[in-house]
Amino acid sequence: MNFKMRTCGMSLVKYILFAFNIIFAISGLGILIAGAVVLADVNQFSHFVEGRVTAPPIVLIVTGLIIFLIASLGCFGAIKESPTLLLTYAVLLAIIFIVELAVGIAAAVFKADLEMMLKNSLQESIKRSNHEDMMAWDNVQRKLMCCGVDNPADWRTLSLNKTLPASCCREKYIDEAVGHCTESLALGVDKYFQEGCVGKLRERIDKNAVILIGVGIGIAFIQILGIILACYLASTIRHERMK
């Protein structure tokens, strides 16, 4: 009777682990997709952000792919009832968990310096005002509906020609013939975007960070459960085979 109960219990854990890994594989694809979406969004403004901003979503994409492969190993180990494969699976899960934790800590540390880094990058770009810089500024100002670093006055004080670009104008006021706002007064409140781009960019990056952190925490809990199940099943199988 005890033998049958132990056998049933082991079979139950095996099927739970198998089902868990199916879910885990799907979650890996979810992480990959979330990382790709965030990376695509951040890359729109890559001219002004350092590689450290794009690193977390790239790590998440790679992690999602690795999780999918590890989940396949977990399924195979559960089917074969192989303690070696199951423990290898548990160790790999633990390594991925540590990597995710390290990335999360690095992102939290970097976040404290994010606004100053963005501000310096934006100010230097306005001072250069070359073709590449202006294309990047037109993109960010139109998409985020902002102007300058802190406000439109930055173009008057920092740029080479002391002129606000047309991308600072609200769309209905742009005069294509002259390339700036129609009959605009200096820094016209009604015609120019009044919010600076540093705040808008920070908000966009913070929003993406919330997505990454939420996905990361959810997967971390799933990984801990997987490690416990795999270790328990491996231990049970070894115990039964030693009898």
Rank of each mutant, 00 (worst) to 15 (best):
A112M: 14
K111H: 14
R128C: 02
V140P: 05
A177P: 00
N139E: 12
F110I: 00
D133V: 07
G199Q: 08
S167P: 01
K127V: 12
G179N: 06
K162N: 11
P165L: 04
A186M: 11
S125Y: 06
A166D: 12
Q141S: 08
S167L: 03
E176H: 09
E203I: 09
K207S: 09
L185F: 14
E176W: 08
N139L: 13
Y173D: 08
E124Q: 12
D113K: 08
Y192F: 12
R142Q: 15
L114A: 04
E195Y: 01
C146M: 08
S121M: 01
T157H: 14
A153Y: 10
R128H: 09
D206Q: 11
F110V: 00
L158N: 12
R202Y: 08
L164F: 01
Y173S: 02
V140A: 08
M116C: 04
R156I: 15
C169P: 00
V149F: 01
A112Y: 10
D133W: 03
S159Q: 03
K207G: 05
K207M: 04
F193M: 09
L187E: 15
L185T: 15
C169L: 07
C147N: 03
L118T: 04
G196Y: 04
C197D: 03
K207T: 07
M135A: 13
W155N: 03
V109R: 11
N130C: 07
G196V: 06
V140Y: 02
C146D: 03
E124S: 13
T157S: 12
L160R: 15
V109H: 09
R202N: 07
A166M: 11
V189Q: 14
R156G: 09
I174V: 13
S184H: 12
C169W: 03
G199P: 00
V109C: 05
E171Y: 03
I205K: 06
L201Y: 01
D175E: 12
V189H: 14
D133G: 10
H180I: 10
M116N: 15
E183I: 04
V109I: 13
C147K: 02
S159W: 02
K207F: 10
E195L: 06
K119W: 02
V198F: 02
H180S: 13
D113I: 01
L144M: 07
K172F: 00
S125L: 03
E183H: 07
C197L: 01
E203Y: 10
E183R: 06
K200G: 02
E171F: 04
D138G: 01
P152V: 11
L160P: 10
R156T: 14
G199S: 09
Q141W: 11
N120W: 04
L187Q: 12
R142E: 14
C147Q: 04
R156Q: 15
G188L: 00
P152K: 06
F110A: 11
L185V: 13
C197Y: 01
G199I: 03
K191P: 06
A136F: 08
L185A: 15
R156W: 13
P165A: 05
N120G: 13
A177W: 00
L114K: 05
L185I: 14
C181E: 05
R156Y: 15
V198S: 02
T182K: 09
D133Y: 04
K111G: 13
D154N: 12
S167R: 02
